[in-house]
Protein backbone atom coordinates (compact mmCIF):
# COMPACT_ATOMS: atom_id res chain seq x y z
CA UNK A 1 0.00 0.00 0.00
CA UNK A 2 1.35 3.42 -1.00
CA UNK A 3 0.38 6.78 0.41
CA UNK A 4 0.11 10.01 -1.54
CA UNK A 5 -0.10 13.48 -0.07
CA UNK A 6 -2.08 15.62 -2.47
CA UNK A 7 -1.48 19.36 -2.15
CA UNK A 8 -1.79 19.54 1.63
CA UNK A 9 -2.02 22.90 3.40
CA UNK A 10 -2.76 23.35 7.06
CA UNK A 11 -3.68 26.30 9.29
CA UNK A 12 -4.00 26.74 13.02
CA UNK A 13 -6.42 29.66 13.09
CA UNK A 14 -4.81 32.37 10.97
CA UNK A 15 -1.35 30.83 11.13
CA UNK A 16 -0.19 28.86 8.11
CA UNK A 17 1.68 25.75 9.23
CA UNK A 18 2.10 23.76 6.02
CA UNK A 19 1.89 24.92 2.42
CA UNK A 20 1.13 22.81 -0.65
CA UNK A 21 2.83 19.55 0.31
CA UNK A 22 2.90 16.92 -2.44
CA UNK A 23 4.66 13.69 -1.55
CA UNK A 24 4.60 10.02 -2.50
CA UNK A 25 5.28 7.39 0.12
CA UNK A 26 6.06 4.14 -1.73
CA UNK A 27 5.66 0.78 -0.02
CA UNK A 28 8.77 -0.75 1.54
CA UNK A 29 10.71 2.52 1.84
CA UNK A 30 11.64 4.69 4.82
CA UNK A 31 10.94 8.38 4.15
CA UNK A 32 12.61 10.77 6.59
CA UNK A 33 11.19 14.23 7.09
CA UNK A 34 13.62 16.79 8.48
CA UNK A 35 13.25 20.49 9.07
CA UNK A 36 13.90 23.26 11.59
CA UNK A 37 11.92 23.22 14.82
CA UNK A 38 8.35 24.44 14.43
CA UNK A 39 8.23 23.75 10.68
CA UNK A 40 5.18 21.53 11.06
CA UNK A 41 6.82 18.12 10.54
CA UNK A 42 4.99 16.51 13.49
CA UNK A 43 1.75 18.13 12.32
CA UNK A 44 2.32 16.61 8.88
CA UNK A 45 2.70 13.18 10.48
CA UNK A 46 -0.56 13.63 12.43
CA UNK A 47 -2.28 14.55 9.16
CA UNK A 48 -0.91 11.45 7.40
CA UNK A 49 -2.26 9.12 10.11
CA UNK A 50 -5.66 10.80 10.39
CA UNK A 51 -5.21 12.21 13.88
CA UNK A 52 -5.83 15.65 12.41
CA UNK A 53 -7.68 16.92 9.32
CA UNK A 54 -5.77 19.02 6.79
CA UNK A 55 -7.29 22.42 6.05
CA UNK A 56 -6.81 21.83 2.30
CA UNK A 57 -5.77 18.83 0.24
CA UNK A 58 -5.99 15.18 1.20
CA UNK A 59 -4.01 12.11 2.14
CA UNK A 60 -4.70 9.31 -0.32
CA UNK A 61 -4.27 5.61 0.24
CA UNK A 62 -3.28 3.81 -2.98
CA UNK A 63 -4.15 0.14 -3.00
CA UNK A 64 -5.31 -1.78 0.04
CA UNK A 65 -3.29 -2.72 3.11
CA UNK A 66 -1.67 -6.19 3.10
CA UNK A 67 -3.95 -8.97 4.38
CA UNK A 68 -3.76 -9.43 8.15
CA UNK A 69 -2.94 -5.78 8.80
CA UNK A 70 -4.93 -4.87 11.92
CA UNK A 71 -4.08 -1.17 12.09
CA UNK A 72 -2.67 0.01 8.73
CA UNK A 73 -1.41 3.41 9.89
CA UNK A 74 0.44 2.96 13.19
CA UNK A 75 2.35 5.55 15.19
CA UNK A 76 5.47 5.37 17.30
CA UNK A 77 5.64 8.37 19.62
CA UNK A 78 8.58 10.33 20.95
CA UNK A 79 7.51 9.84 24.59
CA UNK A 80 6.71 6.12 24.05
CA UNK A 81 3.03 6.48 25.19
CA UNK A 82 3.03 3.25 27.17
CA UNK A 83 0.31 2.76 29.79
CA UNK A 84 2.24 2.80 33.09
CA UNK A 85 -0.32 0.54 34.78
CA UNK A 86 0.07 -2.28 32.27
CA UNK A 87 2.97 -4.66 31.89
CA UNK A 88 4.95 -4.93 28.65
CA UNK A 89 2.66 -7.78 27.63
CA UNK A 90 -0.45 -5.83 28.70
CA UNK A 91 0.57 -2.80 26.67
CA UNK A 92 0.77 -4.93 23.56
CA UNK A 93 -2.41 -6.87 24.23
CA UNK A 94 -4.21 -3.51 24.70
CA UNK A 95 -4.03 -2.85 20.98
CA UNK A 96 -5.02 -6.42 20.09
CA UNK A 97 -8.00 -6.78 22.47
CA UNK A 98 -10.06 -4.21 20.62
CA UNK A 99 -9.62 -6.02 17.34
CA UNK A 100 -10.92 -9.26 18.83
CA UNK A 101 -7.54 -10.94 19.22
CA UNK A 102 -7.38 -12.63 22.61
CA UNK A 103 -6.04 -15.70 24.36
CA UNK A 104 -3.47 -17.91 22.69
CA UNK A 105 -3.63 -16.04 19.39
CA UNK A 106 -2.68 -12.82 21.16
CA UNK A 107 -0.01 -14.62 23.20
CA UNK A 108 1.59 -15.90 19.97
CA UNK A 109 1.70 -12.44 18.42
CA UNK A 110 3.14 -10.97 21.64
CA UNK A 111 5.86 -13.64 21.84
CA UNK A 112 6.75 -13.04 18.20
CA UNK A 113 7.07 -9.25 18.42
CA UNK A 114 8.90 -9.38 21.76
CA UNK A 115 11.47 -11.79 20.35
CA UNK A 116 11.94 -9.54 17.31
CA UNK A 117 12.75 -6.63 19.63
CA UNK A 118 14.79 -8.81 22.06
CA UNK A 119 12.39 -8.19 24.96
CA UNK A 120 11.25 -11.75 25.66
CA UNK A 121 12.66 -11.71 29.21
CA UNK A 122 10.78 -8.53 30.11
CA UNK A 123 7.29 -9.71 29.25
CA UNK A 124 5.87 -9.10 32.72
CA UNK A 125 7.85 -5.95 33.62
CA UNK A 126 6.11 -2.63 34.25
CA UNK A 127 7.21 0.41 32.19
CA UNK A 128 8.67 2.07 35.31
CA UNK A 129 11.19 -0.77 35.55
CA UNK A 130 12.48 -0.27 32.00
CA UNK A 131 15.12 2.08 30.60
CA UNK A 132 14.20 4.62 27.95
CA UNK A 133 15.56 2.49 25.14
CA UNK A 134 13.63 -0.56 26.31
CA UNK A 135 10.43 1.49 26.59
CA UNK A 136 10.79 2.56 22.99
CA UNK A 137 11.45 -1.05 21.95
CA UNK A 138 8.20 -2.00 23.71
CA UNK A 139 6.45 0.73 21.73
CA UNK A 140 8.03 -0.60 18.53
CA UNK A 141 6.89 -4.14 19.30
CA UNK A 142 3.40 -2.84 20.07
CA UNK A 143 3.40 -1.21 16.64
CA UNK A 144 4.66 -4.42 14.97
CA UNK A 145 1.91 -6.42 16.70
CA UNK A 146 -0.82 -4.76 14.64
CA UNK A 147 1.05 -5.49 11.37
CA UNK A 148 1.04 -1.92 10.08
CA UNK A 149 1.12 -1.09 6.40
CA UNK A 150 2.89 2.20 7.21
CA UNK A 151 4.71 3.10 10.43
CA UNK A 152 4.49 6.76 11.37
CA UNK A 153 7.43 7.56 13.61
CA UNK A 154 7.42 10.90 15.42
CA UNK A 155 10.98 11.63 16.61
CA UNK A 156 11.15 8.11 18.08
CA UNK A 157 14.75 8.43 19.30
CA UNK A 158 14.74 12.04 20.46
CA UNK A 159 14.01 11.25 24.11
CA UNK A 160 16.98 8.85 24.32
CA UNK A 161 20.66 9.40 25.04
CA UNK A 162 23.09 9.12 22.13
CA UNK A 163 24.40 5.60 22.93
CA UNK A 164 20.88 4.19 23.23
CA UNK A 165 20.03 6.00 20.00
CA UNK A 166 22.87 4.25 18.14
CA UNK A 167 21.72 0.86 19.45
CA UNK A 168 18.09 1.48 18.51
CA UNK A 169 19.08 2.68 15.02
CA UNK A 170 20.85 -0.67 14.54
CA UNK A 171 17.69 -2.40 15.81
CA UNK A 172 15.52 -0.51 13.32
CA UNK A 173 17.91 -1.30 10.46
CA UNK A 174 17.84 -5.01 11.42
CA UNK A 175 14.06 -5.03 11.62
CA UNK A 176 13.85 -3.43 8.19
CA UNK A 177 16.41 -5.79 6.59
CA UNK A 178 14.65 -8.86 8.00
CA UNK A 179 11.25 -7.69 6.84
CA UNK A 180 11.08 -4.38 4.93
CA UNK A 181 8.39 -2.05 6.20
CA UNK A 182 7.10 1.31 5.02
CA UNK A 183 7.76 4.22 7.33
CA UNK A 184 7.52 7.95 7.58
CA UNK A 185 10.20 9.00 10.03
CA UNK A 186 10.09 12.55 11.40
CA UNK A 187 13.26 13.80 13.06
CA UNK A 188 15.34 16.90 13.64
CA UNK A 189 18.48 14.78 13.81
CA UNK A 190 20.23 14.69 10.43
CA UNK A 191 22.37 11.72 11.45
CA UNK A 192 19.26 9.59 12.02
CA UNK A 193 17.92 10.78 8.66
CA UNK A 194 21.00 9.72 6.68
CA UNK A 195 21.26 6.40 8.55
CA UNK A 196 17.63 5.35 8.14
CA UNK A 197 16.10 7.19 5.19
CA UNK A 198 15.78 5.90 1.63
CA UNK A 199 14.77 9.41 0.79
CA UNK A 200 14.98 12.53 2.93
CA UNK A 201 12.43 15.29 2.63
CA UNK A 202 13.72 18.71 3.73
CA UNK A 203 11.03 21.12 4.90
CA UNK A 204 11.50 24.89 5.07
CA UNK A 205 10.67 26.88 8.19
CA UNK A 206 7.08 27.81 8.86
CA UNK A 207 4.97 27.66 6.75
CA UNK A 208 6.54 24.31 5.94
CA UNK A 209 7.12 23.66 2.23
CA UNK A 210 9.17 20.92 0.63
CA UNK A 211 12.57 22.45 -0.16
CA UNK A 212 14.24 19.38 -1.48
CA UNK A 213 13.97 15.61 -1.59
CA UNK A 214 17.33 13.83 -1.28
CA UNK A 215 17.51 10.20 -2.44
CA UNK A 216 20.10 7.93 -0.81
CA UNK A 217 21.03 4.78 -2.71
CA UNK A 218 23.32 3.12 -0.14
CA UNK A 219 21.53 0.07 1.32
CA UNK A 220 20.49 0.58 4.96
CA UNK A 221 22.63 -2.25 6.33
CA UNK A 222 25.73 -0.73 4.72
CA UNK A 223 25.34 2.63 6.46
CA UNK A 224 27.74 2.37 9.36
CA UNK A 225 29.03 5.12 11.62
CA UNK A 226 31.85 7.08 9.95
CA UNK A 227 30.82 6.27 6.35
CA UNK A 228 32.32 9.08 4.22
CA UNK A 229 29.39 9.27 1.80
CA UNK A 230 26.92 9.59 4.68
CA UNK A 231 29.03 12.31 6.30
CA UNK A 232 28.98 14.19 3.00
CA UNK A 233 25.20 13.83 2.65
CA UNK A 234 24.69 14.98 6.23
CA UNK A 235 26.86 18.04 5.54
CA UNK A 236 24.84 18.81 2.38
CA UNK A 237 21.60 18.55 4.33
CA UNK A 238 22.95 20.81 7.04
CA UNK A 239 23.98 23.40 4.46
CA UNK A 240 20.43 23.28 3.10
CA UNK A 241 18.91 23.72 6.53
CA UNK A 242 21.36 26.00 8.27
CA UNK A 243 19.86 29.34 7.28
CA UNK A 244 16.32 28.11 7.80
CA UNK A 245 17.20 26.86 11.28
CA UNK A 246 18.84 30.16 12.18
CA UNK A 247 15.85 32.15 10.95
CA UNK A 248 13.42 29.82 12.72
CA UNK A 249 15.37 30.27 15.95
CA UNK A 250 14.86 34.03 15.81
CA UNK A 251 11.11 33.88 15.28
CA UNK A 252 8.76 34.88 18.06
CA UNK A 253 6.35 32.20 19.04
CA UNK A 254 2.75 33.38 18.94
CA UNK A 255 0.75 30.22 19.25
Amino acid sequence: MDLKLDNISHFYGEMEILRAINLDIPAGKVICIVGPSGCGKSTLLRLIGGLERPTRGEVLQLGSPPPGSINPLTYIFQDFALLPWRTVEGNISLVLEDHGIKGSQAADIISDVLSRTRLTDFRRALPKQLSGGMKQRVAISRALAVKPAVMLMDEPLSALDSQTRELLMDDLVNLWTNEPFTAVYVTHNLNEAVRLGHSIVVLSRRPGEIREIVELDIPLEGRKMGNIELERQQQLLWNLMREEAMAADKELINV
Binding site: L51, N71, T74, F77, A81, L83, L94, D98, H99, V146
Partner: peptide, 12 residues
Amino acid sequence: TLIRMGQSFSLS
Protein backbone atom coordinates in the same frame (compact mmCIF):
# COMPACT_ATOMS: atom_id res chain seq x y z
CA THR B 1 -0.67 11.57 24.58
CA LEU B 2 -1.98 8.27 25.98
CA ILE B 3 -5.48 9.07 24.68
CA ARG B 4 -3.96 10.07 21.31
CA MET B 5 -2.12 6.74 21.32
CA GLY B 6 -5.40 4.89 21.94
CA GLN B 7 -7.01 6.68 19.00
CA SER B 8 -4.02 6.00 16.76
CA PHE B 9 -4.50 2.26 17.36
CA SER B 10 -8.21 2.63 16.51
CA LEU B 11 -9.38 1.64 20.01
CA SER B 12 -13.11 2.08 20.54
